[in-house]
Simulated assay, not measured.
Amino acid sequence: MSYLDLQPKFDFQRVGKQVILIEIDGLSQLDQYINEDFTNACKAILNCLGKVVIMGMGKSGHVGRKIAATFSSTGTSSFFVHPGEASHGDLGMITARDIVLAISNSGESREIQTLLPILKRQKTQLICMTNNLESSIGRATDIHLCIKVPHEACPLGLVPTASTTAILAMGDALAIAILQARGFTAENFALSHPGGTLGRKLLLHVNDIMHTGNEIPKVNRDASLRDALLEITRKKLGLTVICDKWMKIEGIFTDGDLRRIFNTNIDLNHAKIADVMTCGGISIQSNVLAVDALNLMQDRHITSLLVTNGKQLIGVVHMHDMLRAGVV
């Protein structure tokens, strides 16, 4: 017989909501510990000449890994060291220039306590997160951040739930306070996230994806409409640029223009491209972010932009280039 057979009407939603309320209550009381100790911790991390090393056992360690990742992605170089592994050689990764942030809800983690005398001997600054300033770890470290919560969500009071949520929130509070104090920008964030969508949007420029040289569809103003259509077909960008020998733009002709002239009396067999082109063309500079080029295309309801250096044509960028680069 399964456990559910014993409780066929068990109310999962009620318990789930109760857990959320308990954790909300814990977080609502956490702001009382955003005090002078919090300020001192932020200043110490800002002034750190090395890295912020996070330590924690069990669930505290799992949350500590996330805090280290948040620090690293927001401009504070950080990594996680397992206290057990530190006792068997990984302690050599930590120097006097670093700061150790030790996480232990009870403040009595033996694995961390074992390391503290050695870290103090090499003058590594120590910050801790515990629920008790008078705990062994709380007394031994330089700065104590309290993460005490009234209750765990576990009815047995055993499984770390509200306490790990508090640890995570305190880590986020540290990271974001330091981020703002440092003047960290979205561009800084993108540098450590080049593979993500935000990274591509903030790092990729038009000159990284534009078509140049022989890939540019172009004809001179004396070319026939037929020659222009052949150029559009060859270059597969849905347009051709009309320019002089110095690459100064005179006009543009697109697939859409071709469809529109079918409703006119123009002799398609003998027309010159200068007779049917659209003068000028919408252009952008090569050093502009690709995402800004995309926004311009969307605002003007077009699929291509001419890329210029002053008045000289140096490339063409198409909506498909944005798709391939992952900007869209």
Rank of each mutant, 00 (worst) to 15 (best):
M129E: 05
I167D: 07
G251K: 04
Q180K: 15
S104D: 00
T141N: 13
N47L: 15
Q285A: 10
L204M: 15
D267M: 05
L116M: 06
V53L: 00
E134K: 14
K123I: 07
G199R: 00
M210S: 04
V81W: 00
N40W: 07
M319Y: 12
V291S: 15
A102W: 00
S135T: 08
M93E: 04
G84R: 02
F262M: 15
T70K: 03
S28V: 14
H301M: 14
H270A: 11
I112Q: 01
V316Y: 04
L306W: 00
T39M: 09
E85H: 01
G138V: 04
T76L: 02
M1N: 12
L91F: 05
L49H: 12
I54V: 12
T278I: 13
A162V: 08
G157E: 06
G92A: 02
S106E: 03
I54G: 01
A169M: 09
F262N: 15
I127K: 04
A68V: 03
M297D: 10
Q122I: 14
G75M: 04
V276Q: 13
F253K: 05
T161E: 05
I67W: 12
M57P: 02
H193R: 11
L198N: 03
K123W: 10
N265C: 15
A186R: 14
K17I: 12
I127E: 08
R260D: 12
A69Q: 01
L158Q: 11
I284K: 04
F71I: 06
I103T: 06
A173Q: 04
L4T: 13
G280A: 07
I261R: 07
R97K: 12
I252A: 00
F189E: 07
S104C: 00
G326C: 07
F38S: 05
V327R: 02
Q298T: 12
D299P: 10
G26W: 04
V149G: 01
S87F: 03
V291M: 11
L268Q: 13
I261N: 06
L289F: 14
L204P: 10
L4G: 07
P217T: 09
H301S: 13
V52D: 02
L258Y: 07
N47T: 13
L294E: 07
F184P: 02
I67T: 12
H205A: 11
P117G: 05
G251F: 03
I99T: 06
P150R: 01
Q122G: 06
T130N: 06
L229C: 13
L198S: 05
M129V: 03
G326L: 03
Q32F: 14
I20E: 13
P117H: 08
L203S: 06
G107W: 05
G238A: 05
Q285T: 09
R234G: 09
E108G: 14
P194I: 04
K248P: 09
A223R: 01
S87C: 08
W246I: 10
